[in-house]
Design a protein around this nucleic acid. Structure first.
Lengths: 354, 354
DNA sequence: GTGAAAGCGCTAACAG
DNA sequence: CTGTTAGCGCTTTCAC
């Protein structure tokens, strides 16, 4: 067991016969040093097994080359995808990523967050449901870019929800649907507001009527609850706030013997993995999550080195058509079963009324 | 825009009328400083808005209070759950987590990994399919704990697979199954070896025969491929390497008109979210992922401060029974359809042969 | 219990 | 292009 501390630039300098600062330059800004010298230094370095010490570099420069990825739920598949994109971009740019899962706003998490923030140069934040104030206090500490959400004039990267809604409407209109129900997500969610606005516009554009129920929690359970309310006044098509609600809806409808998509078409937002696995597959709007994550760190890095605009980018979405949408049926009998009567109020699915 | 650099211990020291070293002590080892002085210091600190600078502390101590969470796929739901557990435990212990997604072993990722490793005190590694050599070179650099996998004598935290297999067998035996097919995962996967061994033992124990097909990639596609091979010589029960393969199997079987669970019972390992969402729900073995992640960092931290044993812990699993398993049918006709004849080879499901 | 002083390993002017 | 010289902010002996 030799007491081998890790080699430093001084060790390399001695071995290469140059000054420590030259070694430093050779690594931190190649080109500022003569080719021959650089070679000698590199050689000495590899012989010694020298590796630059990021921590020491950080004390000297005040920049750690780390960025925080602050999320509210690593477990959420969409978040994971954002993370991956962010990770890749950060890695490619020579940045290390610190992940902070803020979850519930418990005190310990808060400390962890503070700790994380105080070591990084900036942050990319994917916290769809976090309170505005939390975000604001966060961006006060470090440059930050928001993901999948806008707030004030803060730089952010979002999916083009309006466009997604338009595509959805176009799809449903083409299938003959004349009236859709929007099953709203959390009332305070930025995305919900965007969906509502997009819904209104797209509805106009395609001559499709719409009404809204909710808000509901953005979970499968939420969707199942929503099914009950939906059936009090059914429509042939339903746009859910997100995939989880859509999945919950499909489950609850199916459980009641209502056929999806024969009797009701259901669409979601997100394109989570599960939407391809359920039966029927869920027609949904896919956000370019990976790209959003990557662009988020790209923009953040731009902010950090001053080359950046603090703008908001909206990335194009994609409509993924699966089995949960179908042409509006004029003859519900052919659907096989007709168990559409619900509750004493005795409403029917419009398509079933004839 | 005042040129306000962040306050340092010197600022606090001046304001509190003490030496900088005292301020340092007050924060790094409370108790080594008189109560009154400590109060004065704390007061000055909060007035100034002082926050300890982790980077500077790290240069001085050589320890960053950061640990790396090295994973091969943040997007994998199991990995995400491990991450969360690890994150929580790390945060609670005052450690910040650096996440490094090693994915494919591309060069850029490798550099990113090196960079990450060189800043942390240790690492928790969730890389089920990474080559042994990669892991070994990794643990050579920093203390590390493996998750969901064993290698040599390296410290690790794993689920008790043998026990999971036993529970599975008990369940299937109770349902009357006398013969199961094990659909193997990647041949080099540690978990696959464990499953095979567990299978043999548990088979003995419960008097259930078993055979093995594979290896198959641990994906839905892999499971769908496996279905073909399974049907060349069907059994009434199938144990899949993991949930994804199980889901693929169920899809392919269902697509061929074979009823799960009426004709074939299918079980998996993992209890991923999708296993609750598909129809029928998947009976599966759930690993305590969150706890494993947490225990992983706990053990790592023990290693770091010397208080720890470099042992391997096997955590208890849980059998989650859903709809994909059922009693072995003696009368296949009652299953509704009987499309069990497959391929020209003309084999039948044993249960269908009578 | 507290202060003084010497680093940690690197970068950043500033001269040559 | 390269060497010299100061630090970065904190911890840590070693005295007092």
């Amino acid at each position: 067991m030799a007491g081998n501390r890790a080699p430093t630039i001084y060790d390399v300098a001695r071995r290469a016969g140059v000054a420590a600062s030259t070694v430093s330059r050779a690594f931190s800004r190649p080109g500022r040093v003569a080719a021959g010298t650089a070679d000698r230094i590199r050689a000495a370095a590899t012989e010694l097994g020298y590796r630059t010490n990021p921590v020491a570099r950080a004390t000297a420069t005040g920049r750690t080359s780390m960025i925080a990825l602050i999320v509210t739920d690593v477990t959420d598949p969409a978040t994971a995808e954002l993370l991956r994109g962010a990770q890749e971009a950060a890695g490619a740019a020579g940045f290390t990523t610190v992940v902070s899962d803020a979850q519930d706003d418990g005190v310990p998490q808060r400390e962890a967050l503070e700790r994380a923030l105080s070591t990084v140069d900036g942050a990319v934040v994917a916290a769809p449901h976090a309170p505005d104030t939390a975000l604001r206090s966060l961006v006060a500490q470090r440059p930050a870019v928001l993901l999948d959400r806008m707030l004030d004039g803060l730089p952010s990267v979002v999916p083009d929800i309006a466009d997604g809604m338009r595509r959805l409407m176009a799809h449903l209109a083409e299938l003959g649907h004349e009236m859709v129900t929007y099953v709203a997500g959390p009332a305070d969610a930025w995305a919900d507001g965007m969906r509502r606005r997009g819904l209104r516009q797209a509805g106009c554009e395609y001559g499709v009527q719409s009404r809204r129920i909710g808000p509901f929690p953005a979970t499968i359970a939420g969707g199942m609850t929503a099914a009950g309310e939906l059936l009090r006044r059914p429509t042939t098509a339903v746009i859910a706030y997100d995939d989880l609600i859509a999945i919950g809806l499909i489950r609850a409808l199916t459980a009641r013997g209502i056929l999806v998509p024969q009797e009701v078409s259901v669409v979601g937002f997100g394109n989570v993995a599960a939407s391809a696995l359920i039966t029927p597959g869920l027609t949904t709007v896919a956000s370019p999550l990976r790209a959003m994550g990557a662009l988020g760190v790209h923009n953040l890095l731009g902010l950090l080195d001053g080359s950046g605009s603090a703008a908001t980018d909206a990335l194009p979405v994609r409509l993924v058509v699966r089995g949960s949408t179908a042409h509006r049926r004029r003859n519900p009998a052919s659907a096989g079963r007709g168990s559409l009567i619900v509750s004493g109020a005795g409403s029917y699915l419009p398509v079933a009324t004839l």
